[in-house]
Amino acid sequence: MNKEKIEKLLFIVPTCLFLLTISIFPFLYSVYLSLFQAKLTKMHKKFFIGWENYQIILFEDDIFPTAIKNTFMIAFSSITIEIILGFIMAKIFFEIRHLKISNVLRTVTIMPIMLTPLCVGLVFLYILNPTLGIFSYILETFFGIEPFAYLGQPIPAKISIIAINSWQWTPFMMILLLAGLMTVPNEQYEAAKIDGANWFHVMTKIEIPSILSFVLLGIVLRLIECIRLFDIIYVTTRGGPGIATEVMAYFTYRTEFRSFQVGTGSASAVIILIISLIVTTIAVMLLRRVEKNEDFS
């Protein structure tokens, strides 16, 4: 019995210890550092200043609040686009699921998710380049719009980031929603047909209710990704123009690793952590729920 207990512990304990050092330790250390005026290049000279770092980034400075706002604005817009486009695509794939070509199409479709975000950013940086890019060429030749710096103007830059983000992640939503559609029992469609329900009724009364938990899961998982949004910003706009595309992760990186103010940076890291913890708790709950649904179906 005792031997079995040890054996069981060996399965689980090493991983837990590993995760403790990598997840709990950083959190505590961030909280600790966030109470200091500290520079990475002269850590031995740090001194305690209490809550001042939080005071500065949250209330005195406009950049971090804007970064929070931008993060959620980008998250909200791109997730909305992803759900709408994802739903349409899921419907298409659902309809053609028996065709051989659907497999090939699906492979092509999910490709963007797997691509290195850095490279995705680079490709778009090139496409959106006002003098070299294909995008401005198309706009100019077909619509007569003079090229301008799409990433150099506040609103077009925001739109570009949202577009890149949605381009990469719509397939993810599509896959989740497709899985949701698959759970709709065939009889329900047949019954609707007999009742003479139009497509709108089918969508609102049958499809949406059954994919709702998948949509929620998708939203939460994507929210988590959006909170981390970094690579694409890093290669395309670097938070600019001005602070139009400054997001939380990039702000933290910049503060900690370009200005080396690890005290202030840790304060923003702690805030990001708290926001993620809330989102994560919801995510885990939803995952459990979806998993249960699946098991029953």
Binding site: F27, T252, Y253, A269, I272
Partner: peptide, 8 residues
């Protein structure tokens, strides 16, 4: 947890 928060 976002990696950026654990980096430093």
């Amino acid at each position: 947890l976002p990696p950026v928060a654990a980096a430093i």
